[in-house]
Amino acid sequence: MIDPVTLLLYAAALLVATVAQRVIGLGFGLVMGPVSVMVAGPIAAVPLNCIFSAIGCILMLPGVWLDVDWRRLTWLLVPAIPASVVGLLVARVVPTDALRIAVGVVAIAGLLVSVAFTRTRHTLDGPTTRITSGFAIGSLNAAVGVGAPPVGVYALVSRWDPRVLAATMQPFWVVLNLATLAGRQLLVPSGFPEWPWWAWLGAAAAAALGTLLAHRIAHLVPERAARATIVVLSLAGGAAVIASGVAGLLAAG
Rank of each mutant, 00 (worst) to 15 (best):
V144I: 15
V157G: 02
V68N: 10
L140N: 04
V39I: 15
H219T: 12
W70N: 06
A240W: 02
S36Q: 08
A20P: 00
I137W: 02
P82Q: 08
A83F: 07
L66G: 06
S114F: 05
L30R: 03
V113S: 11
L235A: 13
S190T: 13
L7S: 05
V5S: 09
P4S: 04
L181Y: 05
G191P: 09
V78T: 13
W198C: 01
T118N: 06
V86D: 02
D3T: 06
V246R: 05
L9P: 03
A207L: 06
A226W: 01
G25P: 12
L165D: 00
L165F: 13
R72N: 05
D97H: 15
G147L: 05
V115C: 08
R72Y: 00
P79R: 13
I230C: 05
V93M: 12
L250C: 10
A40F: 13
F192H: 14
W173V: 04
A208C: 09
F28H: 14
L178I: 14
A17Q: 03
V103K: 09
T123W: 00
I51H: 05
V232T: 14
V221S: 02
V144L: 11
S244A: 12
A206W: 01
G210A: 03
G183S: 12
A239N: 10
H122V: 02
R119S: 05
T123D: 01
I131R: 10
R100F: 00
V146K: 00
T6Q: 14
L14C: 13
N49E: 03
V37G: 07
